[in-house]
Amino acid sequence: MAGHNKWSKVKHIKARVDVIKGRVFSKCAHEIALAARGGGGDIATNARLRVAVDNAKAVSMPKDNIDRAIKKGLGELGGEAIQEVSYEGYGPAGIAFLIEAATDNLNRTAADIREIFSKNHGSVATPGSVSYQFDRKGEIRIAADGVADDVMMDAAILAGADDVQREEQEHVVLTSPTELAAVAGELRAAGFAIASEKLVSIPQNPSVVDDPEIARQAMKLYDLLDGYDDTLNVFTNLEVADEVFAVLDA
């Protein structure tokens, strides 16, 4: 059972703070709308929608918001349809970024993403020039409270997972992209409460930053991309060296 790097931990601490800010509701709504648009509004027959709704419920998103997002995806509320799009770019010191977004205005979102990069020591890259540096995986998060590491590992491998990592107060179960739903279903059947279930992009070779100023710039760029209204997910190969974290925390 391996541990994630410290930047990974920071990202997920930040994600929990975003719940309080309410920004996570917007991301959940976009994902629900995309799922409904692609596979219909019935969670019994639309696996992606079921996952999106489960994730929304896990962060206490109100039922009215969930229902409205489904209707948006089905086109029942009017307006432009939500589309899924991804962007690739480089930040300071060549740090790689992948951005998954959902938008009803492709031109606006592309311009906004380009501006965020250009104003923060980065640039948008051509499609495929960054994504090859990442592996696509299924990720399942389960609270570690009351679940021993060896118990989680045994259950996850039995369910068909590839690996289990420990991250602060969560177990992170990794699967192949095609096995995510099946492994999550096995773990639910075994009695585990799943906090989130989604596809992620994991860097093959983390870019370790040992310069505090570069770390600040890269983390600011991440925050701006992640905080953008149309963003669903941001993945990066940024890894901040321990001694730099000590400086940043001082």
Rank of each mutant, 00 (worst) to 15 (best):
V51W: 05
R37N: 05
D211K: 01
H121F: 15
R136H: 12
Q204R: 15
P62T: 00
R216E: 15
H171E: 01
V183E: 04
I70A: 11
V247Q: 15
G91Q: 10
A56W: 07
E167S: 14
G91V: 06
V151H: 08
D223V: 00
V59F: 13
Q133I: 00
I13C: 06
P127V: 09
M153H: 10
V59G: 03
G22Y: 14
D226V: 05
S131V: 09
R68N: 09
G78T: 07
A35M: 04
V172I: 14
S8Y: 14
D145H: 03
A35V: 11
Y132S: 05
H30S: 11
D162Q: 11
G38R: 13
L49T: 02
L248S: 04
V247Y: 08
L174N: 01
V200H: 06
D64K: 12
A181P: 01
I214S: 05
L174Y: 06
G38N: 15
D18L: 10
V172Y: 04
S60K: 12
R166Q: 09
A110V: 02
M61S: 07
F245H: 12
V151N: 10
S196C: 03
A182W: 00
K6I: 01
K72Q: 12
L174M: 05
L221N: 03
K6G: 10
K220R: 05
A215P: 09
V130Q: 04
N120K: 03
D54T: 03
D242H: 07
V59T: 05
D150A: 06
D230A: 15
P127D: 10
A36D: 08
P212Y: 05
A159N: 03
F117K: 10
A44H: 01
L77Q: 13
K57H: 07
A161T: 01
R216W: 01
D42L: 11
E243Y: 02
F134N: 08
V147G: 00
L248G: 08
M153K: 11
T236S: 15
E84I: 08
K63D: 15
C28G: 12
V24H: 03
G185D: 01
V17R: 08
A246V: 13
D154I: 10
A155Y: 07
E239N: 06
A156V: 03
I66S: 09
K63H: 04
I20A: 10
G22P: 13
Q169L: 15
F235S: 15
L238C: 10
V147T: 14
W7E: 13
W7P: 02
F97M: 14
V173Q: 02
E243W: 00
V209C: 06
H30M: 07
V19Y: 02
M153P: 01
S176Q: 14
G40P: 05
A36R: 07
P206I: 11
I70T: 06
S131K: 15
E239V: 00
T45E: 13
G191I: 07
E179R: 07
E167H: 09
T236G: 10
R216A: 14
A215C: 04
E243I: 08
R188Y: 03
A215H: 02
I116L: 14
L98S: 00
I13S: 11
E179S: 09
I116Q: 12
F235Q: 04
A58G: 09
A58M: 04
E76T: 00
T175K: 03
E167A: 11
